[in-house]
Simulated assay, not measured.
Amino acid sequence: MAQNDPALLIDLVTRLGRWLDEKRFDEARTVFTEDATADTVGGSVRGIDALAAQARRNHPADVATQHFITNPLIEVDGDRATIDANLLVVFASPTDRRVLGERYRLEAARTPDGWRLCRVAAQVIWEVPSV
């Protein structure tokens, strides 16, 4: 493990939240590997293009989101890492609000371009339904 790997992985997790909130779906390759998978409340997909399409579908342009990703627990094993973290996400459309509390289980791989996520799994722990 390189001394700065934990800081780089925290930065990667922060970029994941910003990627979703700022709807930068065309920039998926700055966050994910080509063969990345996602298992979330929005569905299960494999491959970066399918992952970006799912994110775009579940985070529409007219719905503001804010992802609070906290308490990352990072384990690095060579060029692979796991990151467990808490996630609080707010969806705010013009007509309603929805809040989810989830647990993230992320896997990352060191690539020539730096750390990238190769797996995102999110488990819903609680939800405040639309109000």
Rank of each mutant, 00 (worst) to 15 (best):
R80F: 07
Q123D: 15
L100A: 08
D96V: 04
V31F: 04
A121T: 12
R103E: 08
L8C: 12
R119S: 15
A7D: 10
N4I: 04
A109D: 13
R57P: 07
W19L: 10
D21E: 07
V45Y: 03
A85T: 04
D35W: 06
L88C: 13
L8V: 10
A122Y: 07
L9C: 04
V45Q: 01
T37I: 01
M1E: 08
L87T: 00
P60Y: 01
T95K: 04
V131H: 14
H59Q: 05
A85V: 14
D39E: 15
A7C: 02
P6G: 05
A64M: 13
P6F: 10
L87Y: 04
D26T: 12
A64G: 11
D35P: 02
A109V: 13
E107G: 07
P6H: 04
T82P: 01
A52S: 06
V89L: 11
R46C: 10
A64K: 11
D26P: 03
R103V: 15
T14E: 09
L73M: 04
V124R: 15
Y104P: 07
R24D: 08
L8E: 13
V124Q: 14
L117S: 01
V124D: 00
L100P: 06
F91M: 11
L20A: 12
W126Y: 14
L9S: 05
E127C: 09
L88K: 05
D35G: 14
V120I: 15
A52G: 09
G42W: 10
D84K: 02
D21G: 04
W115P: 10
W126D: 10
S44H: 15
P112V: 13
S93L: 11
L12V: 00
E127W: 00
G43Q: 06
G47Y: 07
E22N: 09
T65Y: 07
R46E: 09
T30N: 14
Y104D: 11
M1N: 12
A108F: 00
R97M: 14
V128A: 15
W126G: 10
H59Y: 12
L12R: 07
W126T: 09
D84Q: 08
E27K: 12
V120K: 06
